[in-house]
Simulated scan of single mutants.
Amino acid sequence: MSGIIGKNFGMTSIYLDNGDNVACTIVKVNYCYVVQIKTLENDGYFSIQLGLDEKKIKKVSRPLLGHFKKSGISPKKKLLEFKNSSYTDFKLGDVIGVNFFNVGEIVDICGISKGKGFQGVVKRHNFSGVGERSHGQHNRLRSPGSIGAGSDPSRVFKGKKMAGRMGGKKVTIKNLVILKIDSKNNILVLNGSIPGNINSYLMIKKKKWNLKY
Results as ranks from 00 to 15, higher is better:
17 D>S: 14
193 S>Y: 02
35 V>M: 13
41 E>N: 13
96 I>Y: 01
101 F>C: 07
37 I>L: 05
63 P>C: 07
80 L>I: 02
168 G>E: 04
14 I>E: 05
140 R>S: 08
187 I>D: 00
166 M>H: 09
34 V>G: 10
91 K>I: 01
50 L>P: 02
57 I>D: 11
15 Y>Q: 12
98 V>K: 00
113 S>N: 09
178 I>M: 05
90 F>A: 04
122 V>H: 03
192 G>L: 03
67 H>W: 03
51 G>R: 04
131 G>F: 00
159 G>W: 11
194 I>W: 04
191 N>C: 12
151 S>P: 12
93 G>K: 12
66 G>N: 15
180 K>F: 06
174 K>F: 09
114 K>T: 15
20 D>W: 01
150 G>D: 11
101 F>D: 04
152 D>E: 13
180 K>P: 00
35 V>W: 00
136 G>M: 10
113 S>K: 07
162 M>E: 05
41 E>C: 04
73 I>H: 06
162 M>H: 00
79 L>P: 01
16 L>K: 12
67 H>G: 12
159 G>L: 07
169 K>E: 15
30 N>E: 15
97 G>E: 13
113 S>G: 02
23 A>H: 09
190 L>R: 08
107 V>L: 08
142 R>W: 06
158 K>R: 13
64 L>R: 10
108 D>T: 05
115 G>T: 06
44 G>Y: 03
5 I>L: 10
109 I>E: 04
158 K>W: 00
203 M>N: 06
114 K>F: 09
190 L>D: 04
5 I>K: 00
133 R>A: 12
15 Y>S: 13
9 F>E: 15
152 D>C: 05
72 G>K: 11
